[in-house]
């Protein structure tokens, strides 16, 4: 089941997505991080962030909308408390990096550069739930290219950029990230969305809007992975959006992803990533596929 995302070798193509697996150790009894392809940390900023007011989550048809607001313990606490144990367990760790300003992304990376056991950085330029930073970098190709380049200059480690489905031109942002030096692209982040309480005549979430995830977004995510793969066939992609089963993972690989991330499914079933690995393995066996990498970009047109 081994695959790779650029230079990052993975024992299997299934990762736990940022913001759905804590700092990698929260679910060790139900889903040991070392058994996954990789774990992506909660988005880390230089300082701890308290996040948004509640209600922060609401369930919708086959999905959920969240506006957590990047609550996190800060990069220092992560490096001190979580990373050493993840290293000890042999987990492959990608650090999701967030900043309200460009300098903050660089600060997080600079702090992690002092540590071993970071396999890659994933730049969060697509969070719909914060007022500064995040999505504005992901929506402006010129700004994204500059941010990626500055991060590229700050590290020799693999650099992934997590793209927003809300950007006006997805392929333009993908090209900008690659031009700035991204080694791989993760897509998609959540889709900007809203839920309304008709009786109260108010938005359900305290933040008003949030990001939609779960099975509801899978067809959108597949289309976007496929579009970016077609435009940039040499760039490794990490597919994310509503992956619930091994078959879903196979669909993302066929669309052009080298690996997938599992997010909302973990909220339903904390062991979902392990189940998805097993299901993907069975799918490959049933299809007579010896190497899971045969699936990558294998979509055929009639």
């Amino acid at each position: 089941m081994a695959t790779s995302v650029g230079a990052v070798a993975l024992a299997n193509p299934v990762m736990a997505a940022s913001g759905t697996f804590g700092y990698g150790l929260d679910l060790i009894d139900l889903c040991p991080p070392e058994r996954l392809g990789a774990v992506v940390s909660k988005g880390l900023s230089p300082q701890p962030r308290p996040g948004n007011p509640t209600p922060r989550i609401v369930e919708t048809a086959a999905g959920m909308i969240n506006a957590i607001g990047l609550q996190n313990v800060g990069v220092e606490a992560f490096c001190r408390d979580a990373l050493p144990l993840l290293r000890e367990r042999g987990a492959v760790v990608a650090v999701n990096v967030f900043g309200a300003r460009m300098e903050e992304y660089l600060e997080v990376i600079a702090r992690c550069e002092r540590e071993t056991g970071v396999a890659a950085y994933e730049l969060n330029v697509s969070c719909p739930n914060v007022t500064a930073g995040g999505m504005e970098f992901g929506h402006d190709p010129a700004l994204l290219e500059t941010l990626t380049r500055r991060c590229r200059e700050a590290t020799g480690r693999p650099l992934w950029v997590k793209l927003s489905p809300n950007a006006p031109d997805l392929v333009a942002t993908a090209r900008a990230a690659v031009a700035g030096g991204a080694d791989a692209l993760t897509l998609i982040n959540t889709v900007r969305a809203m839920a309304i309480d008709a009786a109260a005549r108010r938005p359900v979430l305290a933040n008003g809007c949030g990001g939609l995830s779960g099975p509801a977004v899978k067809p959108i995510a597949l289309r976007m992975v496929w579009e970016v793969h077609r435009a940039l066939p040499e760039v490794p992609l990490v597919g994310i959006g509503g992956v619930e089963t091994g078959r879903d993972a196979a669909e993302f690989l066929l669309a052009g992803a080298s690996a997938v991330q599992v997010g909302t499914a973990i909220f339903r079933d904390p062991a979902a990533p392990l189940r998805i690995v097993a299901e993907l393995e069975r799918f490959c066996e049933a299809q007579g596929i010896a190497d899971v990498r045969e699936l990558i970009g294998g979509l055929q047109w009639r």
């Binding site: 913001g19 759905t20 697996f21 804590g22 929260d26 679910l27 139900l30 308290p50 996040g51 509640t54 209600p55 922060r56 989550i57 959920m64 969240n66 957590i68 609550q71 973990i266 909220f267 904390p270």
Partner: peptide, 19 residues
């Protein structure tokens, strides 16, 4: 959302300001 501390949907504000 999850019941196991990873989605951060059910946060409560404490007297010391922590969520």
């Amino acid at each position: 959302g999850c019941g196991v501390g990873v989605c951060l949907g059910c946060v409560v504000e404490l007297a010391d300001g922590r969520m």
